[in-house]
Amino acid sequence: MTDALLVQHLSKRFGTRQAVDNVSFALNIGDVLGFLGPNGAGKSTTMRMLTGFLPPDNGTIAVFGQDLQKSTQAVQTLIGYVPEGAPLYGDMTVYEFLQFICAARGVLKSRRALALYDAAEKTALHEVLDQRIETLSKGYKRRAALASALVHNPPLLILDEPTDGLDPNQKHTMRALIKALSAEKAILISTHILEEVDAVCTRALILAEGRVRYLGTAAGLRTAADVPQPARLEDVFRSLTQIQPPMQQRSAA
């Protein structure tokens, strides 16, 4: 079986900064892979490469066996993506926005109404379909962005911090939604909330300074670091991502 997403030796450098350094992983339908790591770890940069926004310096990305670099647009039709901060066209109504996304995604005219209402139903957007996006609350904005990533029913979903800035209820709704979607999709989410690993993820990938520090099951994460058991995720995270100070410096001091 071909992987929904297969990433091999992905690297990206900005000037002198190695933002992503030799990252490899695979993802399958039914998986929710949680992308964790401190600020600046390279999570968003990786996602931007996976969605064809940034070209990688090195490495390959294959979605259902199709190479992203070779057939960018064909692969992009298989992906639903919500960028960091969920940017939206503020002066459109939710309905107009989703219509545009449907058209741009090439959803057949005869299927647009169905696709649009299906996505709006999943994300509970009915009430605000005719409201300008600018005037929506953050929770609704986030859901509008998610709906736009769902209209073409993509098998691969990439969400950059989908619960960031939401209130506890909205967070809960968003997680429940991601879980419900995960049955028939491969999902990649990034987050700073460690409980989300337990709540929604089946697998976890911890990134620090662009490098993979942990890749495995969400359950196995607790025992991944050299910390006293039973461990709190926080301690595991800190232990895995903290930059070790160079030994010589310490002994010199």
Binding site: G52, F53, Q73, P83, P87, Y89, A104
Partner: peptide, 14 residues
Amino acid sequence: KSGTLELLLTLPIG
């Protein structure tokens, strides 16, 4: 500036 360029260019629009 608003970040929608990322949205636009990750649609299958070249």
